[in-house]
């Protein structure tokens, strides 16, 4: 191996992680300014006392949980059907959903909801955010579950059916249990992607559905606030744990 490759790799990993490490370090800095003055958990205390942050975090968790349940259920069934026989149209739709710029997805959903609201007495709120999140998380679920299905042996189901199982029983008792790690990994990914989204959410959110990324965006825009470092660190730690979990699930 060439000598400079490890040096390059070390530099890139530093580039990837140093900015996050800096946030973590300054989240426990006692000063309001960007100079180290000593260890303190003040910003975490302030974070926990902030009612706006607490409400937004709760909204984000509710939205991500509901959207994940819906997209994992529908996405798993769809992946299974695609595994049996592919559908070019659905595969195209999955790719379209993955490559459509977030901002275009956001404004198209906004235009769609507003168009529906002309006929129904509804407003933007938690429900529109959840629907929007289902629309972009389901593609991730299909991709991850289908990847898991492709590692399975299709003859197992045939054997089950030869032994008298119906198609439903073969799916329910043979394939589905084998799919659990893939489904769990897809769920974690869907939850993380939903929890993190700002661009689409900001377009379709109503007054009662402010999410954590929306509050973070507003804080970052306003300028220096060390509380944001504490919030960021909390998110990095939470999501980092989720990643490790899903990596373990995928390896099984």
């Amino acid at each position: 191996m060439k000598h400079w490759l490890p040096v390059h790799a070390a530099a890139v990993f530093t580039f990837l992680y140093l900015p996050l490490a800096v946030l973590v370090v300054f989240s426990v800095n006692s000063s309001r300014f960007t100079a180290w003055t000593g260890f303190s958990l003040d910003w975490y205390r302030e974070m926990l006392r902030n009612p706006q942050l607490a409400e937004a975090a709760w909204n984000s968790i509710v939205i991500a949980a509901v959207a994940t349940v819906i997209s994992v259920s529908a996405g798993t069934l769809a992946a299974y059907a695609l595994w049996k026989r592919t559908s070019r149209l659905l595969a195209g739709a999955v790719y379209l959903s993955l490559v459509t710029p977030e901002i275009v997805m956001g404004i198209s959903l906004l235009a769609f909801f507003q168009w529906i609201f002309r006929h129904l007495d509804l407003r933007l709120g938690m429900h529109t955010v959840i629907l929007a999140h289902v629309s972009f998380t389901i593609a991730y679920v299909i991709v991850v579950v289908l990847a898991r299905l492709r590692t399975l042996d299709g003859t197992l189901e045939e054997a089950a059916q030869d032994l008298g199982a119906t198609e439903w029983q073969a799916f329910r008792t043979v394939t589905l249990p084998l799919l659990v790690p893939g489904i769990a990994a897809a769920g974690l990914l869907a939850f993380a992607v939903s929890f993190d989204d700002y661009v689409i959410t900001s377009m379709v959110a109503g007054v009662d559905s402010e999410t954590l990324p929306m509050v973070i965006y507003a804080m970052a825009r306003r300028g220096a606030t060390p509380v944001l470092n504490a919030v960021s660190t909390a998110i990095v730690l939470a999501i980092g744990t989720l990643t490790l979990l899903s990596a373990r699930l995928m390896r099984q």
């Binding site: 996050l20 946030l23 990914l189 993190d196 973070i216 944001l228 960021s232 990095v236 980092g240 989720l242």
Partner: peptide
């Protein structure tokens, strides 16, 4: 996996 927003804010 880590929030794109948080990484941009960093």
């Amino acid at each position: 996996w880590i929030s794109f927003l948080v990484r941009t804010y960093a």
